[in-house]
């Protein structure tokens, strides 16, 4: 992109960069139309400025206004983690637990994925790694029953944070979305202010389908924020620009690996700089 002047080729190159970063056709066109106007009116002549303008615009879209992330605002502060299969929910819970614990908070994990083979064992191992308790029942039991017990246990054991793991599910499967709503209702009946956060986990290597995931999970369950995992690969995760634009959901954290401390707060500017 080290060109001297702005021409069609440069715009084509930018289109390619944005689309190959998974921003999608629509968002890419919207962004390029904005700068194209300025180019036509001769307000934008320098390729470097053009790039800066695009970055600014993307950063602006990603800087979604939202209520503060405040895990100390309730006790226990209940966080439900949801998403489609294999995006990194359970691993992210391990990382979040580690972070909260190092901030001096008392954390409890809840194995409400009772469906996937060895999901309970996987979460239990994360519990051991971080050294925090895990509430569980045997595989195949009702996830809302697990959540029900966990809410009581969290109160009686004076927990600050409850992290609720759920089974991966396709956003298009009605019965599985109903199951998730039931978990949410049970938690809410125990504490009318809970769950305090419902975080949707998205895999950075996912393309346009992430928008459909975010739409449906938001509509059905009421997502409060996003976590974008697997940014340590070569995928850019550009679909969150479209998601932020349409759904106004803040990205709370990004995942950059499989270890305990591979979790970072989301920084819109840094994210944008990694795009181009």
């Amino acid at each position: 992109l080290g060109r001297k002047k702005i021409d069609m080729d440069l715009l084509d190159e930018l289109e390619e960069v944005l689309i190959t970063s998974d921003l999608g056709v629509r968002t890419t066109q919207l962004l390029l139309e904005k700068v194209a106007d300025k180019i036509k009116r001769q307000e934008l002549k320098d390729p470097q400025k053009l790039r800066d303008q695009l970055r600014e615009e993307i950063t602006r879209i990603l800087s979604v206004e939202s209520s503060a992330w405040d895990p100390r605002s309730a006790r226990p502060f209940v966080i439900m983690i949801i998403g489609v299969n294999g995006v990194g929910k359970t691993t992210t819970i391990g990382k979040l637990a580690h972070q909260f614990k190092s901030e001096g908070l008392k954390v409890m994990l809840v194995a409400a994925d009772t469906f996937r083979a060895a999901a309970v064992e996987q979460l239990s191992l994360w519990g051991e790694r971080v050294n925090v308790p895990v509430v569980k029942q045997k595989s195949g039991s009702d996830p809302s029953a697990v959540a029900f017990d966990a809410m009581d246990a969290a109160v009686s054991r004076g927990m600050d944070i409850v992290l609720l793991d759920t089974a991966g599910r396709m956003h298009t499967k009605v019965n599985l979305m109903e199951e998730l709503k039931k978990v949410q209702r049970v938690v809410n009946r125990k504490d009318p202010s809970a769950p305090h956060e419902i975080l949707l986990v998205l895999d950075a290597s996912t393309g346009q389908n992430a928008l459909s995931q975010a739409r449906l999970f938001k509509e059905e369950i009421g997502v409060t924020g996003l976590i974008l995992t697997k940014l340590d690969g070569t995928a850019k995760g550009g679909i969150i620009v479209a998601i932020s634009d349409e759904l106004q959901l803040p990205v709370r954290y990004i995942g950059i690996g499989e270890s305990l401390d591979d979790l970072r707060p989301f920084d819109p500017e840094e994210f944008t700089r990694a795009l181009f």
């Binding site: 689309i19 998974d22 070569t234 850019k236």
Partner: peptide
């Protein structure tokens, strides 16, 4: 490979 993969599928 995951059918939901985006543009990165080529590199992977």
């Amino acid at each position: 490979a995951d059918a939901m993969t985006g543009q990165d599928a080529v590199q992977v």
